[in-house]
Simulated scan of single mutants.
Amino acid sequence: MTLEFSSLEWIVIVTMFGAAFVQGVTGFAFAMVSMGVLSGVTSVQLAAPLVALAALTNHTAQCLYYRRAFDRIIVAQLLLGAVLGIPFGLLALRFLPETWMLIALGSVILAYSLYSLVGPRGGQLLKSKRWIYGAGFLSGALNGSYNLPGPPVVVYASSQNWPQERFKGNLISFFWVNAVLVVIGHSLDDRFSVQIIHQFLLAIPGILLGQFLGVSLSKHLNPPMFQKITAVILAITGVRIITLGL
């Protein structure tokens, strides 16, 4: 007996593998890659709950790997802001027109990718507590609507000059809790259809394999260079989504 997948299912499987691989190497960008592709071939409303389930699976495995590398106080402060921001994101997903959401999602991805390419490396340290709570709030809002908690927190983390292990540990821990909250939010909104659950189950092996390969290769590759390559891909994806919205 052979398994036959539709073209959409193949896109989901390959996209989740690629997103998990990128996250394994860089410590972030799972949602940006997967949402960037899937929202363009389906819709934001269908892609968001699917990516939420996939992100939770990916982040759970990575949390176990980096369980000793994160700072509990920093993660708790980021989460406090995120908890306040997630409801705003869920409301946006319910009430805002999809055209607006596609343009906003593409703009977020494009803006972050450009920052990654031309932004300062090891720049000024953001010391005020307002920055960490503000980054958490914006991440929560983006997570609730687009499953994109990364950009504000990654920008903040990049300003702190943390060692690579601490950088990844803090981000993954933060992303994991956000993923749990967003999955709960989508559950309350009854967004997990049979189709979405089916696509998620198909994607699990690719997620785990992509993550394993990414984490393994991150020990041998130059992460800053890989982040620049990822940023170029995300920039192209962001422009494509904005075009779809327009």
Rank of each mutant, 00 (worst) to 15 (best):
L3T: 13
E4R: 11
E4C: 06
L8V: 13
E9N: 08
W10L: 15
V12H: 02
M16W: 06
A19H: 03
F21Q: 10
Q23C: 08
V25R: 02
T26G: 05
F28S: 06
F30E: 04
F30M: 02
G36K: 12
V37S: 01
L38N: 03
T42N: 01
V51I: 11
V51R: 03
L53S: 06
A55W: 03
L56F: 15
A61E: 10
L64Q: 10
Q77D: 11
G81T: 06
G81P: 02
G81L: 05
G85N: 08
G85H: 07
F88C: 09
F88I: 13
G89R: 08
G89K: 10
A92N: 03
W100G: 07
M101N: 03
L105S: 02
S107I: 01
I109A: 07
L110W: 10
L114E: 01
L114M: 03
Q124V: 13
S128G: 05
K129L: 12
G136W: 07
F137D: 01
L138D: 00
L138H: 00
S139H: 01
S139F: 00
Y146P: 09
L148K: 06
G150V: 08
G150M: 10
Y156H: 04
N161E: 13
W162L: 15
W162G: 06
Q164G: 06
G169K: 08
L171K: 07
I172E: 08
I172Q: 10
V177I: 15
V180T: 07
L181C: 12
V183F: 03
H186M: 03
L188W: 12
L188V: 15
I196R: 05
Q199M: 15
Q199A: 10
L201E: 01
A203K: 10
I207T: 04
L209R: 06
L213H: 02
L221W: 12
L221M: 11
N222K: 09
N222S: 15
P223A: 02
M225R: 15
K228I: 00
I229P: 00
T230D: 01
V232Y: 00
V239C: 04
V239K: 00
R240S: 12
G245S: 09
L246S: 09
